[in-house]
């Protein structure tokens, strides 16, 4: 029985949560493609593993929570969560990394709080933080780009390596290494100047004078631009985040170029663009007022820079996002926009 007392409006612009989530998934494709081209097929295997885990976890959790499974799985929010996570972990890391990370993200990041819409923390970043703390060694061994390693794994080699840990005919060290962020950080700690570190051989530039990481970041930027255009995400997130991070980098680089890497390094390495357009833009766990979004994003930018330079981890996105997630209610409260006809 449907109540006749349904209120206006009786029209809708036909948007839906599914469409929003699929937009995000679509926008992640350029980056996925770039990833495959530059780092091999590992990411595809990881993605399938993550999706399989997500489906299983969603099913079990929804059953346990006594909620209808189909409508809740088809909101595709879990898909976006695990996609975000997949981009964060090294492509050749063993299978249990992504499986445990995805499961943790969905169970502890989403379902235990009451499902989509009720989670105070970004689930993907919660899963990533869990992995960073639990498996620090695995998480910093990133696959080297083809040009540097001089060798790339085929699909089956990646498959065997991820699932069975079988190394084909080369030691793992020959195709993985520290991420540039952590390499530069260690270098600076050992007294090598930032500029010298950036000229190190493993940061060899590829096409158009850009490194592999640079390309990945640009691919994320392209996807992000699409998201802004389709109004799936708000401009305040990337502007606030990249602005704050860039500004911090510029200030400190101007003070001491030897100790602090330039702006371009911070914007084009690590998960900067991934965070700017795909991670911090998760609406559920972020601020909702226009000014609040800007403050939230800028806060993450500042924290990311701080953690990258002075923290214990090479990249600080996960922790920065989680910290700002806590601050969201406060930010929302103090950034209420002026309502028509009110004087502040």
């Amino acid at each position: 029985m449907k109540s006749i007392y349904t209120s206006s409006p009786f029209a809708h612009n036909n948007s839906s949560v599914q469409k929003v989530m699929l937009q995000v998934q679509l926008a992640a494709f350029p980056a996925l493609l770039a990833h495959i081209l530059l780092f091999g097929y590992g990411i595809i295997i990881q993605w399938f593993l993550a999706v399989a885990t997500a489906l299983l976890v969603e099913y079990v959790m929804l059953k346990l929570r006594d909620k209808p499974v189909l409508p809740n799985v088809t909101d595709f929010s879990a898909l976006i969560t695990v996609t975000g996570l997949v981009f964060c972990i090294p492509p050749e890391s063993p299978w249990w990394v992504i499986v445990s990370g995805s499961a943790f993200a969905l169970v502890f990041g989403k379902h235990l709080y009451g499902g989509l819409g009720y989670n105070p923390f970004n689930p993907a970043m919660l899963g990533y933080a869990f992995l960073l703390i639990s498996f620090p060694a695995e998480m910093t061994q990133w696959t080297l780009p083809k040009e540097i390693a001089g060798y790339s794994l085929s699909f089956w080699e990646s498959f065997n390596h991820i699932l069975f840990g079988a190394v084909a005919h080369a030691p793992i060290d020959s195709f993985t290494g520290a991420t540039p962020l952590s390499a530069v950080k260690t270098g600076i700690q050992e007294g090598v100047s930032a500029q010298q570190m950036l000229q190190a051989p493993y940061l060899e530039t590829g096409w158009w004078n850009l490194t592999a990481w640079g390309w990945i970041n640009l691919a994320f930027l392209a996807g992000g631009a699409w998201l802004i255009y389709t109004r799936t995400i708000r401009w305040q997130y990337p502007v606030g985040f990249l602005g704050a991070l860039g500004l911090m980098a510029w200030i400190f680089h101007s003070i001491n170029p030897d100790l602090y890497a330039p702006v371009s390094f911070h914007l084009l390495f690590g998960g900067t663009m991934l965070a700017a357009f795909f991670i911090i833009t998760d609406p559920v766990s972020s601020s909702t007022t226009p000014l609040g979004r800007l403050i939230y994003a800028a806060g993450i930018g500042v924290l990311v820079y701080v953690i990258r330079n002075w923290g214990a981890f090479p990249d600080g996105i996960a922790f920065a996002v989680l910290l700002l997630n806590i601050a969201v209610p406060l930010i929302d409260r103090y950034t209420q926009p002026r309502v028509l006809g009110h004087n502040r």
Partner: peptide
């Protein structure tokens, strides 16, 4: 069927009174 609010902020952008 209504789903949970994902706090996307579309409504705040559409509100002619600038409410949240």
């Amino acid at each position: 069927a209504p789903m949970a609010c994902i706090r996307c902020g579309e409504c705040a952008d559409a509100c002619p009174i600038n409410l949240q």
